[in-house]
């Protein structure tokens, strides 16, 4: 536990955490407003296929509007968690502090475990912050949309819980990725671009493959971490998608693989 404490102390004693906080706040506010605007203006238009219409219908059901709003801030919150988690590792090499760290704690797996622990705690804090604000703000927005608060619905609380799981899994993934990509600049750029542009690019690629190669390929889209994450927290099961738990399994798989691989590599690598 003292090692996790030391890792959190490292994050606390540089300006990184409040810079990330300053970036997160406006992005979080923007996502709440964007969600609000989306549900305030959307309606089903005639010019859509059956499946699309079904999906939009489903998304507009009050329960799905509620789960989506109560998990506002997830997209950018997870991005920040992902980057912070990677930087917890890469900064040790960027600032040449890995030597000091491994001299203090020669059992390297303990250091990496502590970094996982610290990243998960940071993820939980950011999740808690967005969730608490959501629980205050969203009932007002739902009132504006003439919908009930739906805080009694188990689906809402399940979505909030799955949101926490997503934050935690992405934190683990970030630490693992930080070990694999040791360069701080490369790690932050690759992770940010993959996370932000990845989903869009991947859905285009899969749309093309599905249209021109085979229909079943579309089902593989869930193997992409960002798609898996979206599926996992998509509230209720939407038509045409694999069930939610598949997304959770895939994301847990990625977290476990990067975590184990990262620990194994750190144990073997010469620190010079």
């Amino acid at each position: 536990m003292s090692l996790v404490n030391a890792e959190l102390f490292k994050v606390r004693t540089t300006s990184l955490w409040w810079i990330m906080g300053i970036i997160l706040l406006p992005l979080y506010a923007a996502s709440v407003l964007a969600n609000w605007a989306q549900y305030a203006n959307s309606e089903v238009t005639g010019d859509t296929t059956d499946l699309q219409a079904q999906q939009i219908q489903a998304a507009l059901q009050p329960i799905n509007v509620a789960t989506s709003l109560y998990t506002s801030g997830q997209y950018f919150g997870i991005l920040i968690v992902l980057l912070l988690s990677a930087i917890i590792v890469t900064s040790e090499f960027f600032h040449l502090t890995a030597t000091t760290t491994f001299l203090t704690t020669p059992h390297r797996e303990a250091v990496i475990l502590a970094k996982f622990g610290a990243a998960v705690i940071i993820a939980a804090v950011i999740w808690l912050f967005t969730t608490v604000v959501n629980l205050i703000v969203v009932p007002l927005i739902l009132g504006n949309l003439d919908l009930p608060t739906q805080l009694g619905e188990p689906a809402v609380w399940r979505a909030i819980g799955l949101n926490a799981l997503a934050f935690v899994l992405w934190a683990i993934l970030g630490v693992g990725a930080g070990v694999l990509i040791r360069s701080q600049i490369a790690a932050t750029l690759i992770l940010a671009i993959t996370y932000v542009a990845g989903t869009a690019v991947v859905s285009i690629i899969f749309a093309l493959l599905t249209n021109f190669v085979a229909e079943w390929i579309n089902n593989l889209q869930v193997l992409v971490p960002t798609s898996a994450s979206q599926l996992m927290i998509s509230g209720t099961d939407l038509p045409g998608s694999p069930p939610q738990w598949v997304g959770a399994i895939v994301l847990i798989g990625y977290a476990v693989v990067t975590g184990l691989l990262g620990t194994w590599i750190t144990k073997r690598r010469d620190i010079s």
Partner: peptide, 27 residues
């Protein structure tokens, strides 16, 4: 106790916090 590289602390951290960080990890 070992001193291997002179410039091995996070540039944005104070000297005291660099040492406290080690204290915490080492108990």
């Amino acid at each position: 106790g070992a001193v291997l590289e002179a410039s091995s602390a996070n540039r944005g951290r104070t000297g005291r916090n660099h040492l406290r960080m080690i204290c915490r990890a080492a108990g």
